[in-house]
Design a protein around this nucleic acid. Structure first.
Length: 233
DNA sequence: TCCCAGGGGCCGA
DNA sequence: TCGGCCCATGGG
């Protein structure tokens, strides 16, 4: 019935994005051998240890409302200073940290957020993460999904924008997350789906003038709220 | 020059 | 609950 077709709708969107972009290889991690931050397409075994989980968590905080490009500079800074461990970050003065993470923007706030996370010693759970200063729904779910392999779908501004333009009824964080997680299953799916939506939102379904003619979801899209120029050009 | 980015806290209605 | 404002660097 309705549920069945909706499930097919999400699956079809996922498949179209996947065949268009390919596996995204999230979450990118620093490789000690190549000394580069690398994606690992199709390999969902990362992060592999506690340090990598911590690195991903740091990245989720740094990338709040910030381009990943800027976050990478900071991660290289922190790697160079050997600060990408819970203990090292915990024992680093907030002032010094703020200077190192400057390129990621909001550096004073993010320094405080990172310190709060590094000081946290309890169990990694959604409610515990949400109780920390600086960690909201998206960051908490990102940490759970990408740092700790929990099957959770992360909703972000891109996801909300894309769902709204597609013409879906679900346009809030909770409703979108609930629908995706009811109709789809699996850590790998949630990992990949969010990453694919980010890729689409970054390069095609952009804020101002989305590139509808080259969008892999063009046929299924209602283009709600999209300007006439973007629709026809 | 302006806009926006892989948000979240805080405040007033 | 919800909108508005603030945080800040860097690229198009």
């Amino acid at each position: 019935m309705k549920e069945h077709s909706d499930t097919q709708q999400l699956q079809e969107i996922y498949q179209r994005l996947l065949s268009h972009y390919g596996p995204q290889g999230w979450w990118p991690l620093y490789n000690n051998k190549t000394r580069r931050i690398e994606y690992h397409p199709g390999d969902y075994s990362f992060p592999k240890d506690k340090e990598q989980s911590f690195e991903v968590s740091v990245g989720t905080i740094l990338t709040q409302n910030t381009r990943w490009n800027n976050v990478e500079r900071v991660l290289y800074n922190l790697q160079h200073e050997r600060l990408l461990t819970k203990h090292a970050l915990h024992s680093t003065p907030e002032k010094k940290l703020a200077l190192l993470i400057r390129p990621a923007g909001y550096f004073n706030q993010k320094a405080k957020k990172l310190k709060a996370f590094a000081a946290f010693a309890g169990e990694i759970s959604r409610s515990n993460l949400l109780s920390l200063w600086g960690i909201g729904k998206e960051t908490a779910d990102s940490i759970l999904c990408y740092a700790y392999h929990l099957p959770l779908f992360v909703v972000d501004a891109y996801t909300i924008r894309i769902f709204r333009r597609l013409g879906f009824q679900e346009t809030t964080y909770e409703s979108i997350q609930q629908r995706v997680m009811q109709e789809c299953k699996g850590e790998a799916f949630f990992n990949e789906f969010h990453a694919l939506l980010v890729e689409l939102g970054k390069n095609v379904c952009t804020q101002r003038t989305p590139s509808c003619p080259v969008c892999p979801l063009e046929k299924a899209c209602k283009k709600v709220g999209v300007t006439v120029a973007a629709r026809s050009s």
